[in-house]
């Protein structure tokens, strides 16, 4: 398994488990997290192929000094990494950054309490 695939899979698993948390940035639909002294950014962009219904996903890794060290675009160029996994990571990051699960739980708790 390539290092890129391992990185995306582990980030996805840790984000879903709640052990890695993301923050929204000033850019719409872009989220950032800090891992091992580096920053990982994920965002959606207009699809290159205009006929695509879904936006493309870009993941950038910056080192401790803020320099961009590598980037993944839809997982292209990585044999075992596909677009769906990148999309799933972006969605998990969005849920983490916007604290969707906590908000849902609070609403559900309130609704159940109000019954």
């Amino acid at each position: 398994m390539t290092k890129e695939k391992q990185l995306v899979d582990l980030l996805l698993a840790r984000t879903r488990a709640g052990t890695t948390s993301w923050e929204p940035t000033a850019e719409e639909d872009e989220f950032v997290t800090s891992v091992g002294g580096n920053s990982i950014w994920i965002r959606t962009v207009e699809p290159r192929n205009a006929s695509d219904n879904e936006p493309d996903v870009v993941l950038n890794v910056r080192d401790g000094d803020g320099r961009q060290v590598f980037s993944l675009y839809n997982g292209e160029g990585i044999a075992d990494l596909d677009f769906q996994t990148m999309r799933a990571l972006h969605e998990a990051a969005r849920r983490s950054a916007l604290k969707i699960d906590q908000i849902m739980e609070a609403i559900l708790k309130d609704l159940r309490g109000g019954q």
């Binding site: 923050e23 000033a26 850019e27 800090s34």
Partner: peptide, 14 residues
């Protein structure tokens, strides 16, 4: 602080 730097740089881009 790293996160603060990242937020600041995203603000500057926007």
């Amino acid at each position: 602080i790293r996160l603060a730097r990242d937020e600041a740089s995203s603000i500057s881009r926007v």
